[in-house]
Design a protein around this nucleic acid. Sequence first.
DNA 1: CTCGAATGTCAGGCTACCTGACGTTCGTCG
DNA 2: CGACGAACGTCAGGTAGCCTGACATTCGAG
Lengths: 143, 143
Amino acid sequence: MPPTRRNLPQLLGDARRWFDEGLLAAMEAGGSAPVSPTQAQLFAVLDDEGTTVSELARRMAVTRQTAHQAVHGLVAAGLLEQVPDPASARQRLIRRTPAGRSAHRTAHDVLARLEERLAERIGKDLADALRAALEAPWGPPAP
Amino acid sequence: MPPTRRNLPQLLGDARRWFDEGLLAAMEAGGSAPVSPTQAQLFAVLDDEGTTVSELARRMAVTRQTAHQAVHGLVAAGLLEQVPDPASARQRLIRRTPAGRSAHRTAHDVLARLEERLAERIGKDLADALRAALEAPWGPPAP
DNA sequence: CTCGAATGTCAGGCTACCTGACGTTCGTCG
DNA sequence: CGACGAACGTCAGGTAGCCTGACATTCGAG
């Protein structure tokens, strides 16, 4: 009798943590600067020409403050830089430094490898289904 | 051209948050004490006869401290109580109060409804696949 | 030229984890 | 029986990720 099916939110959290740890460990093992999934995501939504914090926030679907914070960490790590936007004094463009580009690629690769390992473990079909399910729009939780 | 596929950890986090918010909102709307998914999970692994903090930690696969913390919140909310274990003075049993039982049921139902709504939205097959994928053992992230 | 809107930022808060460090209580073993 | 290690509960403090609130600066449109 399986009386206590683990609840979905918990399972999701566990899965997230699995990726988190894997990414951090692999980056660290590879000598790269530690980058969190959130930061990797930030990299991923970054334009090559540079993007403002507000725009990043929109693309990541978080608040400006949250994006700002993520950017801050990467800037401190020397992976991003903020340059004044020539077009407007009230905004600054966020850009990758050379080290940032390298870290970005590494993080991206590691994430891809983790996803692969997942596919090996649970089967490609299931892994694909997982992604598909997660990519579906969630909508408001309480209609 | 979809240049920037969102990374899995991010998607997992979003999904988790969707449930989080749904649960909290529904509980609050229903007048119940606010219960987080973690706390709901705690309820779920709780024996009717009472369980020690350490045992809860094992079942939830977190540290004693984390479990302690979750218990603490629920105790403060009046949903759990700690009673001295007659069998041993160094441990205390954690038990649901009447209010705790009620909150537990409510939380459980809400979670089930959310999962249903998810199934409606993305299709039952996908929802089942999601659960299956998440329930598979994850193993160490960095082998 | 004034005002509302957008931008970036600081401050503070919350949840869910974690490690470290105690003091207490037992079980066991010499 | 008495000492010792192991388990338990707890306090303290730390991290990541997200949030709201508040503010000063800068634009753009009226």
